[in-house]
């Protein structure tokens, strides 16, 4: 049996073990440790008695309080729904136009819509709805499928070129890739389209190019973009006479659009957002474009 020695600093005996110079004091465990342990054990035992805790084969101890996380969650959802019901019921029932004229309801739309928009739409359209190349700007006055709240609500419901059975389908054909127009013809159409929204840009282009472009436009484009190029919201064909461009209004972008075509996709939100949420979002988006003015 090894013999302990007295540690001069603490006055305690060592256990007598020596591991390559390391010794241990034979000091009792401090009382506070036992107290602390007792306190946490008592806390745990009380908690087990009150809450669901120990498994018993196919069941478990349910606890005296009868609390279960599923019930708590349902109660909280219920509470949340009640908190919202003051305005949610009104928005659900009122017509879009009525809501637009009610400043108080519109205040709620702006608050609630901002979070909905941030979580669901901002990834593509930007937090301010300003869009970007390939993603329409929602804060301006140009609308592919119409800017009335009903139309926006419908776009949200079914999406564009989406997987929804009733989805809106919009397609700009690939005139170049599919050999419907030659490269020179496309350049002439680009010149003509430029002249529609920015005549200054084509001032130095030859007359015949413009005339030729107009002819090709009349033969190929008017069925969707209308004779004057102002577009048709029924088929999602954009207005070419304004300054709003999704894929860019410079010559190169216009050329690419006509050559390769465009098939932008907006997902549908039916089934992912509730009718109430889509209604709020439609109102929010329309309000956003009106605010910019």
């Amino acid at each position: 049996m090894s013999v302990g020695e007295r540690d001069p600093h603490s006055g305690h005996m060592t256990t007598g073990h020596d591991w390559n110079g390391i010794k241990e004091l034979n000091r009792p465990v401090p009382k506070i440790i036992w107290l602390f342990l007792a306190a946490t054990v008592i806390f745990s035992v009380v908690y087990w008695i009150l809450m669901p805790a120990w498994p018993l084969g196919v069941t478990y101890t349910h606890g005296l309080l009868g609390i279960d996380q599923r019930d708590s969650l349902e109660a909280q959802l219920e509470e949340g729904a009640q908190q919202q019901s003051a305005w949610a019921d009104q928005i659900r029932e009122a017509s879009l136009a009525t809501i637009q004229e009610d400043p108080q309801l519109m205040e709620t739309v702006r608050k609630t819509g901002a979070t909905l928009f941030g979580d669901n739409c901002a990834v593509c359209h930007g937090t301010e709805g300003n869009g970007g190349p390939g993603y329409p700007n929602l804060s301006d006055q140009a609308w592919l499928w119409g800017g009335a709240p009903e139309e926006v609500q419908e776009t949200l419901r079914v999406g564009i070129n989406a997987e929804h059975p009733e989805t809106r389908i919009g397609q700009m054909m690939a005139f170049g890739e599919n050999r419907m127009l030659g490269r020179d013809e496309i350049r002439d159409v680009v010149t003509y389209v430029q002249s529609l929204f920015n005549p200054d840009a084509v001032a130095d282009r030859p007359e015949e190019a413009l005339a030729n472009g107009e002819e090709i436009f009349a033969a190929n484009c008017v069925s969707c973009h209308a004779e004057d190029g102002s577009g048709m919201t029924e088929v999602g064909a954009p207005n070419l006479t304004d300054d709003f461009w999704i894929y860019g209004g410079d010559r190169q972008s216009l050329y690419d659009t006509i050559f390769y075509g465009r098939q932008g996709v907006m997902p549908h939100w039916e089934g992912r957002l509730s009718p109430l949420e889509r209604k709020v979002l439609a109102l929010y988006v329309v309000d956003m474009s009106n605010r910019e003015e």
């Binding site: 440790i33 602390f36 342990l37 946490t40 908690y47 809450m51 669901p52 805790a53 120990w54």
Partner: peptide, 22 residues
């Protein structure tokens, strides 16, 4: 995860503080 498993995880974590601090 069932509630009871969470309870056990939580209470044992609380008791664990004692030997950790020791």
């Amino acid at each position: 995860l069932p509630h009871w498993v969470q309870t056990l995880g939580m209470t044992f974590s609380v008791m664990l503080l004692v030997p950790s601090w020791a």
